[in-house]
Nucleic acid binder design. Structure first.
Lengths: 147, 147
DNA sequence: TTAGATGCAAACCATTTGCATTGGA
DNA sequence: TCCAATGCAAATGGTTTGCATCTAA
């Protein structure tokens, strides 16, 4: 995962610097948990990273399709690591845990069959869509059942 | 539309003041076009409205379900007037024109049948979802065809 | 060697808050 | 009448930019 990001960075003609490596390591460690730029900066500033570098690198990784932003009810400043299949810009529907923030991805896009109908009904040419499910993941369900 | 918003305001125990009336008139005039708080303030400041009042009122109208926020590729600071059926908190899928910003709503939620499958496959309890289609509306299609 | 990347500080944008004043029910 | 709502100015939170310095290729 880490190597994949480093590779993508190189292949796109960007330098693999020490700060970038550290940032990549940190975001990969978040796994499927969303994190904010500010939180990441707090974590990385002791290693000497500046705020600007953190945000610049987050943006770069987004542009390369390695990270994406999440739009949660509490705000729009969360990032998550994109799964490998997303690098090619492929479509991805997500399911997000309201309790712990964990993000899972749907293997199959459930929309593909209805898109033609929607296009016809609305008169729009449908180009893409964003589908986020919000719910509670199995772990959080399990621990809340214990109450 | 305007009256509907005024009524909802009153029924929720808020005062119908001059600034609020002016703001409501202005947002209704936007119809199905998204607008930003800052742009709205620019428009209303000559009428004497302060920035704080504009943003406070936008928030209030959101809380009442009369406005909602749009998450577009270019940012998350756009608002649109919600259609009447949304007042009761009912679910709504949208289709947004990438060119002119116009927003249309889907009458039927195309997801209802697949949600059970998704819940089973992911292990999540699905509580809600956000589905936004992005494309080009019929008007914008027509005018781009002329090129 | 040298353009691309960094850290810092200051700037920026959207939004919120404190507070004294005003105006609608 | 009197508390909710307002306008102003200043504060805030998240992010970006200018610039001199550094460093990976």
């Amino acid at each position: 995962m880490e190597e994949r990001m480093i590779q993508t960075l190189e292949q796109a003609g960007h330098r693999v610097t020490e700060p970038r490596s550290q940032l990549i390591k940190a975001v990969v460690a978040q796994k499927e948990r969303p994190f904010t730029g500010e939180a990441l900066y707090e974590e990385l500033k002791e290693a000497g990273l500046g705020r600007a570098t953190v945000f610049r690198t987050l943006k770069l990784l987004q542009d390369l399709g390695l990270l994406s932003r999440l739009h949660l009810p509490e705000g729009c400043q969360h990032y998550i690591v994109s799964p490998p299949e997303h690098q090619d810009g492929k479509h991805h529907d997500r399911i997000i845990c309201r309790v712990c923030g964990r993000v899972a991805y749907l293997d199959e896009c459930p929309m593909s069959e209805v898109i033609a109908d929607i296009a016809k009904a609305s008169g729009y040419k449908v180009e893409t869509h964003h589908l986020d499910f919000l719910g509670v993941c199995s772990d959080c369900l399990a621990s809340s059942d214990e109450n």
